[in-house]
Amino acid sequence: MSKYGKLSPPVSPTGSSIMSPLSSMNGSSKQDARLTATSKRQKYFKRLLRFKQMDFEYAFWQMIYLFVSPQKVYRNFQYRKHTKDQWARDDPAFLVLLSFWLVVSSVGFAVVLKLTFLAFVKFILWVIFVDCIGVGIVIATFFWFVTNKYMIMAPPRGQDVEWGYAFDVHLNAFFPLLMILHLFQLFFLTYCIALPGFFPRLFGNSLWLIALGYYIYITFLGYSALPFLKNTRTLLYPITALVFVYMLSLMLDWNFSRGLSTFYTFRVST
């Protein structure tokens, strides 16, 4: 971690193998600029199984800087807009790495919750396709609609928020939440956080406050990075409600982590 902290993240994955077949084509950047949203989406999904063409080093850099300095991650999104005329990622490496961490955290939860193998498989499918991707599609669609409907500067000058970019913002914000609530929390869940009492509840719910607050903040950074949006600070307003619910949970004996464990166990056992 210290090795990365002294260096600046790569500006774009131009040195990766994903660029090598494209760089040999004349006028490739102009061709990408003319691609429709459907064509870009098709290219993205075609690369999902081409691991050799993915820039995992660049995706790993992004994951590190989502904790260290998330603003730098969105500067690279701005660079992609200038070079490829799209805000959204064209390399699925980040999604693949995120899926890997989802599987790792699911193994940890399966051990802590003492799930059977069948329940473990169901748990992984739920976490990846419902909790991450399914909920992400709903959230991305919501922000895509709201930002394009109410936050575009007038006149719009032909610019709008790409749905793919809205989904990328969700993935960026989801990664720190995953690492805090699905990995870091596991080491304290059984012998600390899930126990009755005020201090276990304080510790566990504080992790939820940090994780969800980080999600809101990184989401705000994602949309504030778009120069044609206005009033993006309103995306920070849910933090007020989050703090209120946090204080209420401490007074009313709501242990979010214990509730999550109960919910996960019930969901895979039915």
Results as ranks from 00 to 15, higher is better:
residue 80 R to G: 04
residue 172 N to F: 15
residue 157 R to T: 09
residue 199 F to D: 12
residue 117 F to T: 05
residue 9 P to W: 12
residue 18 I to P: 01
residue 118 L to W: 14
residue 54 M to P: 00
residue 115 L to H: 03
residue 144 W to T: 01
residue 198 F to P: 01
residue 266 F to S: 06
residue 254 W to Q: 04
residue 29 S to F: 14
residue 202 L to E: 05
residue 126 W to S: 03
residue 208 W to A: 00
residue 30 K to T: 08
residue 86 Q to A: 11
residue 205 N to M: 04
residue 38 T to Q: 10
residue 136 G to M: 05
residue 128 I to F: 13
residue 162 E to D: 10
residue 83 T to S: 12
residue 148 N to D: 11
residue 118 L to K: 02
residue 128 I to V: 14
residue 207 L to W: 11
residue 43 K to E: 10
residue 197 G to F: 07
residue 60 F to H: 07
residue 114 K to S: 07
residue 164 G to S: 04
residue 100 F to N: 01
residue 127 V to W: 12
residue 148 N to E: 10
residue 204 G to K: 01
residue 84 K to N: 09
residue 231 N to S: 12
residue 180 I to A: 03
residue 76 N to V: 06
residue 36 T to C: 06
residue 129 F to N: 08
residue 201 R to E: 07
residue 27 G to L: 09
residue 9 P to V: 09
residue 162 E to L: 06
residue 223 Y to D: 00
residue 110 A to N: 03
residue 99 S to P: 00
residue 185 Q to S: 06
residue 166 A to G: 05
residue 126 W to V: 06
residue 35 L to D: 07
residue 130 V to R: 08
residue 67 F to D: 00
residue 217 Y to N: 08
residue 133 I to Y: 11
residue 151 M to E: 01
residue 243 V to E: 05
residue 56 F to W: 13
residue 34 R to N: 13
residue 236 L to G: 01
residue 109 F to Y: 15
residue 83 T to E: 12
residue 1 M to N: 04
residue 19 M to Q: 09
residue 125 L to F: 15
residue 103 V to P: 06
residue 91 D to F: 03
